[in-house]
């Protein structure tokens, strides 16, 4: 049964080789004359100030958390959608309840302003 996945494994390996090959070729063929100016991070020609690993807006974390919730929801929806014909009306109703709860959560987020970017 898992035999159908052999091509997937083969393709993943070939794709990795194809993606790494240009990097190796570029490293071998291209010149190598690094100096301090060339290696300094680009900041429009100025000397870079401070480190680039700086603090950033907390809203990015918020988006990531919201993403996890909704992506999990999609993960739940997929098997349900495949088996829809066998589940029938009862399955439909159960998922309706599940979605309704999620929509309440979504409305709450919206009203709380978690989705605002000014």
């Amino acid at each position: 049964m898992l035999q159908g996945y052999i091509p997937v494994l083969v393709v993943l390996m070939v794709a990795s080789v194809v993606a790494v090959a240009p990097l190796v070729l570029g490293y071998l063929i291209g010149p190598r004359h690094p100096d301090k100016e060339k290696r300094s991070p680009y900041e429009c020609g100025f000397d870079p100030f401070e480190d680039a690993r700086l603090r950033f807006d907390v809203r990015y974390y918020l988006v990531a958390i919201l993403f996890i919730i909704f992506d999990l929801e999609i993960a739940f929806l997929f098997p349900w959608a495949v088996a829809l014909e066998d589940l029938g009306l009862a399955g439909m109703a159960v998922m309706g309840v599940f979605l309704a709860i999620l929509v309440i959560g979504f409305v709450y987020e919206w009203r709380k302003g978690a989705l605002e970017w000014e």
Binding site: Y42, A52, R53, F67
Partner: peptide, 19 residues
């Protein structure tokens, strides 16, 4: 990359692609 532009671009890209 240790570059501020790269970091900002990546954060924006991450949030956008995820959404």
């Amino acid at each position: 990359s240790n570059s501020k532009y790269a970091l900002l671009g990546a954060l924006r890209a991450g949030a956008q692609m995820v959404a």
